[in-house]
Design a protein around this nucleic acid. Structure first.
Lengths: 257, 257
DNA sequence: ACAAAAGTGTTTTGGGTACACCCATGT
DNA sequence: ACATGGGTGTACCCAAAACACTTTTGT
């Protein structure tokens, strides 16, 4: 299992690794999770022996591309390994190809050496969206941590740059595609949806104007279900209907609030 | 020179090729050019000996990534090779990674074999924008042809798919970034700009409404110059001021007409 | 009864859209 | 003089924005 996550952690020979994986191409993934009214991102701890000490570093989850899979399959594989979830939304957003991107920090480079023979890896950046409540924590990989997306610690290699671009692309895409629903639970209240927008765009919206706009979206289905166990008027639950969205979307539609 | 364009056309050994280039990563580029009131794309002819006949096929310009360059440098290199131009706008838009993308057609695969040892290449799709009048035709590469972007012939490998996605991404990006000015000449009339939008989005706009909207763009500078030699009232020329654009742009701005 | 969030309408303002005529130039 | 595209203003409608009170539940 662990060998799936980090190809070749000192166990497989580099020859066996090169037989299964393309050595010079990888996928790194900013996995965004929404939960507890916060947008979070999954980072992984790595223990790196260097100069007799063990360094602790953090990185985005990633993996090399297998010889028989395309990169979307690689991304889906990473999601499965890290979170236990399948059929999660993943999207490639940019390629990171600086010839020296792995040599910024010698400790990081030390982590790489036993894994691959190449000193240069081109990586395809993906972002991924999920609701943290859908994650079975017993299946969440060890050494993983959900960090607030507005306060990400220093990461290995160029992973801070990859994350920053992922976040920027996510905001951009959210205005044009129905991606909020990937972050929300299946049934959600309009206030939850509004709070999510406010979190991601770091702003606030007027409740009445927000609801008027949202009510025009035919693919937002009001359910005959309500919140329970809240000490205030229970809010109506809604769900997203992708079929109606596909039928009624127009070229020009956007999701700006 | 030709060896720059098609790495290893039977001349360099595959070992020498692998020393200079990353064998499993390439860049393919949809070079859009605007001219004669048409949006065009550059395609290249290839002569492929197969079963005793010489087949003629067309493809998008592309090249492998050199071991010491990042992919934007690869794209810039391709632009220089194909058009003779430097400092041209290039943008990566998607990675194409189907393990069988080069094996769709056996004749195409025959073209590849003498060039590289790998049977699988992951390619990064770029699009590029220029005004065809800026191209010095004596520097345009042989066997290149400008095709109307709405009527592209069958291309090798998955290049039709790459082109289609490039065109789709171009339309999307044009609504959010000041990319029209990459396609227009340095000085242009408002009607030229309107025609370009109409060509790309395959629609028409009302002249007065269009001009009202455009006049609100502070970065569109009216010049004290006019068309000459036209048999009607000469139109005023305008230019795009990137500095003013950068200063005054807002998160929410868009270029929809 | 109180706290806490749900839910709801009206007015004002600005932008989008539809539409028709005169102007300057070359031939 | 005529053909060609350049250039301009007004009226209507709808969407965005600003703004405050009543309702329903749990404690």
């Amino acid at each position: 299992m662990e060998s799936e996550v980090n190809p070749n952690p000192n166990r497989i020979s580099q020859e066996a690794f090169a037989k299964e994986f393309l050595p010079s191409i990888s996928v790194d993934c900013a996995i965004f999770g929404y939960g507890e009214n916060e947008l979070k991102v999954l980072v992984r701890r790595e223990f790196i022996p260097f100069n007799g000490e063990t360094h602790i570093e953090w990185k985005l989850p990633g993996n090399h591309v297998k010889r028989n899979e395309d990169i979307d399959a690689t991304a889906a594989r990473i999601l499965k390994e890290q979170t236990g979830l399948e059929n999660i939304y993943v999207k490639q957003f940019s390629v990171f190809s600086d010839p020296n991107r792995l040599k910024i920090n010698m400790v990081d480079y030390e982590w790489l050496k036993p894994r691959i023979a190449e000193d240069r890896v081109i990586t395809v950046g993906f972002y991924s969206l999920l609701n943290i409540n859908d994650v079975d924590n017993s299946k969440l990989i060890e050494d993983a941590n959900w960090e607030n997306a507005y306060d990400v610690k220093e990461l290995m290699f160029d992973h801070n740059q990859i994350f920053d671009e992922a976040f920027k692309k996510l905001r951009y895409d959210l205005l044009h595609e129905p991606l909020v629903f990937e972050l929300l639970p299946e049934k959600f209240t309009l206030t939850e949806m509004q709070k999510l927008y406010e979190t991601i765009f770091n702003t606030t919206y007027d409740k009445r104007n927000y609801r008027r706009k949202v009510n025009k979206m035919a693919y937002l289905i009001p359910l005959d279900e309500f919140q329970t166990g809240v000490s205030h008027k229970p809010a109506r639950l809604y769900s997203f209907n992708r079929d109606i969205y596909e039928e009624t979307r127009t070229e020009r539609f956007d999701f700006r609030m």
